[in-house]
Design a protein around this nucleic acid. Structure first.
Lengths: 338, 338
DNA sequence: CCAGGCGCTGAAATCGGTTTCTGTCCCGGG
DNA sequence: CCCGGGACAGAAACCGATTTCAGCGCCTGG
């Protein structure tokens, strides 16, 4: 016996396929009694709509896409994405949507993925992460027949598309303010990669706030990898003369902690460390890392909700998610008396 | 102008849609000249097959599914999955397949996902991870009209389905052998959750090998979370009398390192630590964690290749992936002289 | 008592490829 | 010169759900 179709249901219920379709999709044209009867039979038969048939006639595939353009190795310590995906899923599954995930090595492959998805009508919308300046993906994602998209990042980077963002500048300011409050007068910053737009926002906020408080600032460029974090830390400890360091992600902060240990520099006695992106890793380290904490799964869920709005035709808008808050732990303290 | 269909291509090429279909799918019935002409026009027009239409008539959706049944929080420090997914992707994208990912809170939701995918014919096959004993998912995945599936785990757990596995027992033996070789006579093991079949395999290998070498063994049950790792470590240090501890994942090992620091126990001088699942986190810690290292992305790629074979109709078989190898770093050393 | 609306039927078109079937044309080998 | 076969055309069915349309009972309000 073949697959169960609405024709089977219609036969069993003694109604027409049209009535079945109405009943199953909750639209007028059938009585409540019939609707329930049909639903009951559908459930009994274990029927589920063929996604192919449904998307062929309607316009929607009940699938959204997400492309991560990162080398597989670097994804290993990005706890961010997995939690983010889980958050997206939590909203998607409520509405029986699926998530088509693609992990590609570079942004060109990401562009190809978008093009293919659009041509094949494989997804109803996409979530775009890590906006750049300039970002070639935006050209594909804006325009009348583009895929509905939500950009995860600052509105200034989203090219007019709907965006969901965190106020990284405010978070950075709160972080510098906290360190200044502890008495630090020379602070370091290990940044992310310059391609990403949010790197600039954080950099500038750090520099501005440090200047406003007359702190000496030492900046080292990182790339989110532990190796970069360790190298930048060694460099700052040797030449920077800083007593506190802020890292753009948890992996670099953890590596920085290791580098400090190795160099015989005590944390937090000799140097204070702050991580961006809180994660269990921050709590597992010793001393535990003070971090800018954010509900990443909630962030993903928020993005997914906005994507649904966008797919429903709502005009583009920007939505601020909650600002990362400093979670003070053992890796920060007042600087040692000179 | 609407979407590009094969009818458009046929018109432009001056052939029939049947000929276009033959040409595009590389099947006999058209001459090489015509085939090339058609392909050229398809490329010019930027045509891509409608995945819905294709899977409606053919049987394949060019999509494979993966369900992760883990609480979102715990996925945050599981570097394993992200790399694994990246590895799967690398093979999928070669063949223009997509990966439908679902993150669900528990195994019942996972069962529902499989059922829905099968009824809706949404995927051509699935990758099943973390086999249990007994595993209710196997009932859905075996049988004549089940979804083709590859189980990531020991053949003894796969219920006759195709499986790809690592020899965890051998890896564990090599680990205990190494510790014994260093001179340790009392070793601890912080396990994973008992639901997972591979937990038993590792447990037993640990117990057996320790007994074979006349080592005292201390076992504490963990659940892959840092908190559990820290608690188990504190307990072992207080009561276990062990000089070396093996952890079933890197997150617990890292937390164990923190707990040791906190308790004033020096690593590796007073206690040696070994992590299962190497990751950048292991290298970022201080001291760097000795770990059982495995090419997780390669593992994922291997799984994907076997899934393609399975979807092509190959009979079930078991394939051994490379065995995790001990990567010796700073967290292990001979025990202190008594 | 009749108009009008509701709840349906049954048939058909549609989405875009795939596949099959009948039939025509042309080319080369025997 | 004739026959066989390859290369197509053209038409059609098909996959399964959605949607439309004409039409027919039945019930109800006025």
């Amino acid at each position: 016996m073949g697959r169960i179709t609405i024709a089977d249901i219609a036969r069993r219920a003694g109604v027409s396929t049209a009535a079945v379709s109405y009943a199953l999709n909750g639209r007028p044209g059938v009585s409540d009694a019939t609707r329930e009867h049909v639903l009951q039979i559908a459930a009994d038969l274990g029927w589920a709509p063929s996604s192919a048939a449904r998307s062929l006639s309607g316009a929607h595939t009940e699938t959204v896409g997400l492309v991560l353009a990162r080398a597989p190795e670097t994804l290993g310590f990005e706890s961010f994405y997995m939690q983010f995906v889980a958050g997206i899923e939590s909203v998607l599954s409520e509405r029986d949507y699926g998530l088509l995930l693609q992990v590609v090595p570079d942004i060109d492959a990401e562009l190809r993925a978008y093009r293919k998805w659009r041509a094949a009508r494989r997804v109803d919308g996409v979530v775009m992460v890590d906006p750049r300046v300039p970002d070639p993906r935006l050209d594909l994602l804006v325009g009348p027949d583009a895929l509905p998209a939500v950009v995860v990042g600052d509105p200034s980077l989203s090219g007019g598309l709907t965006s969901v963002y965190t106020d990284d500048a405010a978070a950075m300011r709160s972080c510098v303010e906290y360190l200044a409050g502890l008495g630090h007068t020379a602070v370091g910053h290990v940044t992310g990669t310059p391609e990403f737009g949010h790197t600039h926002i954080r950099d500038e906020a750090f520099a501005r706030e440090a200047a406003a408080r007359s702190l000496t600032a030492g900046v080292r460029r990182g790339d989110y990898t532990p190796d970069a974090g360790a190298a930048a830390t060694r460099d700052l400890l040797r030449q920077g003369g800083v007593t506190a360091i802020v890292y753009d992600n948890d992996a670099m902060a953890l590596a920085g902690l290791g580098a400090a240990h190795e160099a015989g520099v005590r944390v937090p006695d000799d140097v204070s460390l702050v991580a961006w992106d809180d994660s269990p890793v921050c709590r597992a380290a010793y001393p535990q890392l003070t971090a800018l904490s954010h509900d990443v799964a909630g962030y993903g869920a928020h993005v997914a909700r906005r994507l649904f709005e966008s797919m429903a035709g709502d005009p583009p808008a920007s939505y601020r998610d909650s600002t990362p808050e400093l979670q003070v732990r053992g890796s920060t303290a007042p600087p040692a008396a000179p």
